[in-house]
Design a protein around this nucleic acid. Sequence first.
DNA 1: CTTTTTTATGCAATCGATTGCGCCACTCGG
DNA 2: CCGAGTGGCGCAATCGATTGCATAAAAAAG
Lengths: 350, 350
Amino acid sequence: MATRRVTLRDVARRAGVHPSTASRALNPQTREMITEDIARRVARTARALGYQPNPIAYLLKTNRSRIIGVLIPDITNPVFPPIIRGIEDALGAAGYTAVLANTDNDEQRERVILENMIGRRVDGLIMATARRRDPLVQRCLAEEIPLVLINRTVASGEVSSVVNDDEFGMELAVAHMARCGHARIAHLAGPLDLSTGFTRHRGFIKAMKEVGLKADPRLIGLCSSFNETEGRRVFLGLRAGNRRFTAVVAANDLLAVGCYDALHELGLRAGREVAVTGFNDMPFVDKLRPPLTTVRIPHYQMGAQAARMLLARLRDPHAPIEHVTLRPELVVRDSTGRAPRTSSRSRGSA
Amino acid sequence: MATRRVTLRDVARRAGVHPSTASRALNPQTREMITEDIARRVARTARALGYQPNPIAYLLKTNRSRIIGVLIPDITNPVFPPIIRGIEDALGAAGYTAVLANTDNDEQRERVILENMIGRRVDGLIMATARRRDPLVQRCLAEEIPLVLINRTVASGEVSSVVNDDEFGMELAVAHMARCGHARIAHLAGPLDLSTGFTRHRGFIKAMKEVGLKADPRLIGLCSSFNETEGRRVFLGLRAGNRRFTAVVAANDLLAVGCYDALHELGLRAGREVAVTGFNDMPFVDKLRPPLTTVRIPHYQMGAQAARMLLARLRDPHAPIEHVTLRPELVVRDSTGRAPRTSSRSRGSA
DNA sequence: CTTTTTTATGCAATCGATTGCGCCACTCGG
DNA sequence: CCGAGTGGCGCAATCGATTGCATAAAAAAG
């Protein structure tokens, strides 16, 4: 039977001291207030009794939970696992625990979860769910909860973030297409209320200009969310228009997979009739036929970096706002056709 | 500035009653102890002040956290997101919150996380990490923490579980292979200390007997974990042996993907030279070339069912131990060759 | 050897709720 | 009109820690 857990009082009584003394003896911060001798005795009996401090009581008193909330828009998207892994590793090293929640891209649900986390007194938050203008971010600011945005950021820039250099990534993709001889290049844009969709869209236009091509507005399709069905739908829409194109730069891998689906239905093949690039290099895109050429984002590092920034802010609440952008790289596989086959490395960072 | 949160005392004072009265007025369980009139007044002022009960204080006093811990062996494996979704939905409907943790298949890490969760007084646990003999399960039993195992179960059967009918699934896969005319069928077995690996292995042998074939032990390769690299390694090992085979039944999709990798290296193709089946029907296997024939497990329902069973036990700690097995179905795609192309439905349950 | 200062520990309040118990006032029966 | 019974609330303890302040003992100063 689960015998009642041993409390600080138990330890104190057994060691023949007052609970407050025991508390101080066990807390590294206050240990030097206590005689070496007694501190050791308390520590010893604590160990003997198998004392485990009650985090709830600690939290109630100190308002420090040592928990970080992590909001993920869609846990089904394979880009997030590596990010989460990075966050957990960095946080764990500092004695913090990550609590994950999946918001399902649903604003209502986001709100509920956020309130729940605030209620449970998380010490800080990492959000991968930010929209360019996001009331939830405002809410955190109002509550003065340390916050770091990851992958996506807000337009105002008023909170720390670590994101990919999306413009540069787009340059890589477009430049590669151009090198492969494509001139009529389409873009499958992500939702423009997300910084990723927005910035990649802007990056696409800028990159086209840089390689001396004109970005035809009629060759830009707007997807209302980052998933395969949208990718398929919008690709088919673009194809139904009367502007031809030989290449499509998708704003993320799921959209690119949607293109694969559409091409398959049309009896065409990526890398042959139409060149396709994705964005993210999420797990398994190297296993598609043809393996997908894409822009690799350092997901794991992104997570770890965000966690470290949050920890810094936890230590010093007045740490300055930082914006870190990570440099992506192009991974050339077979979906962009005639280019010399270079690399088809296995799955992203583990 | 984050103005101090309003407490129950504030509400009580404002409503002109004692905190205990306010507490009872606000708690549905005890409302009928209080005069209708006063209860309404308290409720009204609570709403007016925006009172949010402090879950920490509640927990400290009642020892009920309304949190369920969920242990996932590898968040990188795409079978888990749908399971998690199912758990979250069922739990959320009952006012509970799921807290996810990723154990990375590391026993040490599992232990740390479990202790952490116990320390934070989760009301119950759902474990997808169980080994056939598992000390952590014992630990939960000792602490009398309500527990439901999911996907994998323990050999002793002493705790409730919801798993797939793995033997039946294997029958489906093997029978299909036999129907396609294969006689020399290999098996990529998962780790035998996991119930999934163990039962699928046993199911394979049984199914072979049922279709009148002999399971050649030299055509059974043992993988030490469920991932692509192991699948690739063991497949190549089998091929290097001098027993030929024309089909391979893998114990899960990741192992099957490993077979794809190996076949690719050998210049062969699944569904042509060698038929391949997977197990799980995880997201994206329908996007592989060729799309993978596999055994579909109702992941979402599995999660939801496990959550409901846990909730039942939370209500009644003496609820009997239940073992639920869910019936899988075969999804025939192109990796098993000449069979008539039937279905290639899109990604699993969302 | 007394007085002052320092140091180590104990006391008790506190965080924000829940809950057993006691008391007061009201109702109802005799 | 008085006593027993009952229903509605308030009091105070409690959950398990932390921490400002008081105090006793020891050390330093005079």
